[in-house]
Nucleic acid binder design. Structure first.
Length: 310
DNA sequence: TTGTTATCTCACCGCTCAAT
DNA sequence: ATTGAGCGGTGAGATAACAA
């Protein structure tokens, strides 16, 4: 932790001629006192630190000691800042504060304002509008498990609401379609599985460590879930929901059908979850085929109507 | 020239936490 | 229980820029 911050401070000092200790304290979210201690440690390590008092004063590294480090272009740094900013919103912790400070330290002083403005033009924030939810805690635990190669145990609720205890050797975190997933080796089922984080609860980090093994990524890179049997589904939708349809199934799946309507042809699992999704679009979407899907939708609508009509 | 302000330097003290 | 690392807070002092 401390060593990370020291390295990050050196990176910042390498780029800036002089920087105030209070600015460094803000940057690294520590006190002024700690920054002065860090500067002293850097000096003791043999890096020639120069300091100046008075307004506009601060600390810096002797010019003769600095080296060329323009390995990154302005656009590289902007991309890094956007990415790190997003990760920081999902994973709280010191490490990313230090990493962000290091990357900011690479920005040449004359381009600082412009690069910061560009980085702020794109904001990726997956946190909910209301409340904080449990996702950040789960994400943090999984991240630590990946970092320290430790097994995690949790209660998992499947899509069919079957709850069971799982012990998993995490392989990777996946963000797909605005949802976080954990992909790893399930010790209970003795195979690689994908778990939706929001359906995990009571996530515990076990003491037990696991050996890194060759991860069969091809098992994880399929589209959808291995248990899904997909069938060709044809929908007739109106232009109220064309945007959602393109987002779900892609532009090529939509064929114009008369005035303000489209035919969507795609492959979906024929199950209640799909029926619920389609019913959610009310009269903007009708399933043309297969018959099995239509039957499911009709049954769901019948059950729903019982709740509202005599 | 003097006072104000901003900044660094130094020396304390006390708190928390992990290791022993 | 003790020890050490890391950190935060505070106060006194030195220095430099700037304005009156």
């Amino acid at each position: 932790m401390k060593i990370d911050r020291l390295v990050a401070i050196i990176m910042v000092l390498m780029e800036r001629d002089v920087i105030g200790a209070s600015e460094l304290a803000d940057m690294f979210e520590v006190s002024l006192r700690t920054i002065y201690r860090d500067i002293e440690a850097i000096g003791k390590a043999g890096i020639p630190i120069v300091s100046s008092t008075g307004p506009g004063g601060g600390v810096g590294i002797m010019d003769s000691y600095k080296m060329e480090k323009r390995l990154f272009s302005a656009s590289d740094i902007t991309t890094l800042l956007i990415g790190l900013g997003h990760i920081k919103s999902s994973f709280p912790g010191d490490k990313l504060v230090n990493t962000l400070a290091k990357v900011r330290g690479m920005i040449p002083q004359e381009e600082y304002k412009q690069i910061e403005m560009k980085a702020n033009q794109i904001k990726i924030d997956l946190s909910p509008w209301y409340g904080k939810g449990v996702l950040p805690q789960i994400l943090d635990t999984v991240r630590i498990a990946l970092d320290t190669q430790r097994v995690i145990r949790f209660q998992y609720i499947t899509r069919k609401r079957i709850e069971s205890t799982r012990e998993v050797e995490p392989c990777r975190l996946l963000l797909k379609d605005m949802n976080w997933y954990l992909q790893g080796y399930c010790r209970i089922h003795q195979e690689y599985r994908t778990f939706k984080l929001i359906r995990m609860k009571h996530v515990q980090l076990l003491e037990e460590a696991y050996e890194l093994h060759n991860i069969p990524m091809e098992q994880f890179d399929h589209h959808g879930f291995p248990n899904d049997v997909k069938e060709v589904v044809r929908l007739r939708v109106d232009d109220e929901i064309w945007e959602d349809m393109i987002a779900f199934f892609g532009d090529e799946s939509l064929v114009p059908d008369g005035d303000r309507h489209y035919i969507v042809t795609t492959r979906l699992p024929v199950e209640e979850a799909t029926a619920r999704l389609l019913i959610g679009y009310c009269d903007h979407c009708v399933c043309l085929e297969p018959e099995s899907m239509r039957k499911l939708i009709k049954e769901l609508l019948r059950r729903t109507s019982v709740l509202y009509f005599d």
